[in-house]
């Protein structure tokens, strides 16, 4: 039987055929990888976070598996915005929206990166204001509401495409930060980035990751993500994209009930292979059919009592 449910969704003015998006940092540093993920059914692709200059990232170990999730500190490796243009240009014909993730140390850097991404032809920009393990970038910029507002509004006035702001659960008050992004005219909030964490090897008596501290993702952080999306939804009116530990259609539905209009998948690619996008789409449709939901927007935020 064909599914009755319509799983298309909108993030503000950006329509998506389905709500599953590839999270930044997974198989998204080159055009070929992104093409493969598109074939696996993703509704949108968020690129690797790109900065002004090439960056090598940290030495290995940069990623390990723990009992309930994945711990990583890649250190924002990327080829730099100028060389990355070649990758985006190869995706020009793609009907699936490409969202350019960028990181910078200040508003000036974010503006230049945003304008270049727009010139390359991306459909939207995601501001990485939440990477938990890079000095001067990410969370170090993104835990100050005033700075979030300034950076968001500066990028907004300089580009025409939608601007999403990705937030960290490590900041003490995520809804205050989300409000700051909204007042800076952000088009959507993305929550959450990975959670600061550490793993120590008992034999060697040292942290395993070369950066010592990393970001935890996967199953373990889903309740944290759901809580953050729920709190943000209580305080802002712009759309929210939920991310953190989504491995199944029901996980996605839970985030939608908390207030997410779309969701992103990262560590799930490891747990359920590259076609997790197709799998989750099907599971969302089945759940919606079973519970007589006809469209995504009917689910978004229903858990707010």
């Amino acid at each position: 039987m064909l599914p009755l449910a319509d799983i298309s969704t909108n993030i503000g003015s950006l329509p998506l055929k389905n709500p599953t998006m590839l999270a930044s940092g997974i198989m998204d540093e080159d055009a070929g990888s992104m093409k493969r993920i598109i074939k696996c059914g993703a509704g949108a692709i968020v690129t690797k976070s790109i900065g002004l200059q090439p960056r090598e990232g940290y030495p290995n170990p940069t990623l390990i598996e723990l009992e309930y999730g994945i711990l990583n500190a890649m250190g924002l490796p990327n080829p730099g915005i100028d060389e990355f243009g070649e990758e985006i240009l190869q995706l020009k014909k793609s009907k699936t929206p490409i969202i350019g993730s960028i990181y910078g140390a200040n508003a000036k850097e974010f503006i230049e990166l945003g304008q270049k991404m727009e010139d390359y032809g991306v459909s939207a920009i995601e501001l990485n204001l939440s990477c938990p393990h890079a000095k001067r970038y990410g969370l170090e910029v993104g835990s100050d509401p005033k700075l979030i507002q300034i950076i968001t509004s500066s990028v907004k006035v300089n580009v025409k495409i939608p601007v999403f702001v990705k937030l960290s659960p490590n900041a003490t008050n995520i809804s205050e930060i989300a409000k700051a992004a909204e007042s800076g005219n952000a088009d959507a909030i993305v929550a959450i980035n990975s959670v600061k964490a550490m793993k120590i090897d008992l034999d060697l008596k040292r942290p395993i990751l070369s950066n010592k501290i990393g970001g935890y993702s996967g199953r373990a952080i889903k309740p944290i993500g759901v809580r953050c999306v729920y709190e943000i939804a209580e305080h802002v009116d712009i759309p929210i994209i939920g991310v953190g530990g989504i491995l199944s259609g029901e996980d996605a539905i839970e985030y939608m009930m908390a207030g997410a209009s779309a969701i992103q998948i990262g560590a799930g690619v490891y747990y359920r292979e590259l076609d997790i996008f197709k799998k989750i789409k099907k599971e969302i449709e089945q759940w919606m059919d079973k519970h007589s939901y006809k469209k995504i927007s009917d689910i978004v935020g229903v858990a707010h009592l």
């Binding site: 997974i26 070929g32 990888s33 290995n60 560590a267």
Partner: peptide
């Protein structure tokens, strides 16, 4: 050059996303 070795990071991809 490899980082994660479990198919997540994309560092070692060649062609159309072959890890």
């Amino acid at each position: 050059y490899m980082k994660c070795a479990i198919g997540l990071c994309g560092q070692c991809c060649i062609g159309e996303g072959l890890r």
